[in-house]
């Protein structure tokens, strides 16, 4: 829809991949620098929303159909609680990561990485879902 905005198109095409890579960096580097699942999820969703704003929501829906974003939304939370349940099954408390590996530190590291991944997945799924639903609603009202 934005045929005249070729500068926007080119610039966002250049920007979106680095934004996504940056989101992954924030996700997995969260234990060493500032960042973590929440921030990474939001940044990832921001990259997607930028794409939707510039190239149209229809294209964006092709990339991330509703079932995909909803699965992301739910699977993140499942992964988080799943880590807790696995820790329980291995004999520890709920969300006690010490059981996940033999070495205390690597167990904690594994647990944190997994739950941060869950957080990031849910947050980005939630943001993208909400954005797409707003758009869907807008269209429904325009059709009236």
């Amino acid at each position: 829809m934005l045929n005249r905005a070729s500068i926007l198109r080119v610039v966002s095409k250049l920007l979106i991949p680095p934004i996504m890579v940056f989101a992954l960096y924030v996700q997995f580097h969260g234990d060493f620098g500032p960042g973590g699942g929440f921030q990474a999820g939001v940044i990832f969703a921001a990259a997607f929303i930028l794409y939707a704003l510039i190239f149209g929501v229809d294209n964006a829906r092709k990339v991330a159909p509703a079932w995909l974003t909803r699965t992301l939304l739910a699977s993140g939370l499942l992964l988080y609680t799943g880590v807790g349940v696995v820790a329980m099954m291995l004999g520890g408390d709920f969300l006690d990561y010490s059981m996940l590996a033999t070495d205390q530190k690597s167990a904690q590291h594994l647990g944190i990485t997994l739950i941060e991944l869950g957080v990031g997945t849910t947050v980005s799924g939630a943001m993208i879902t909400i954005f797409l639903i707003f758009d869907g609603r807008l269209r429904a009202e325009k059709d009236d």
Binding site: G30, D31, F32, G33, P34, G36, F38, L73, A74, G76, L77, Y80, T81, G84, L95, Y97, K105, S106, Q108, H109, G111, I112, I115, E116, G118, V119, T122, V123, A126
Partner: peptide
């Protein structure tokens, strides 16, 4: 372990709180 204490607190010591936050977002 992780050098960023904020992450250790959020994800390990306060894992339940973070789980609650994620549930709120969901």
């Amino acid at each position: 372990g992780p050098p960023n204490i904020v992450t250790s607190v959020l994800a390990s010591y306060r894992g339940y709180d973070t789980l609650g936050e994620v549930t709120v977002v969901f």
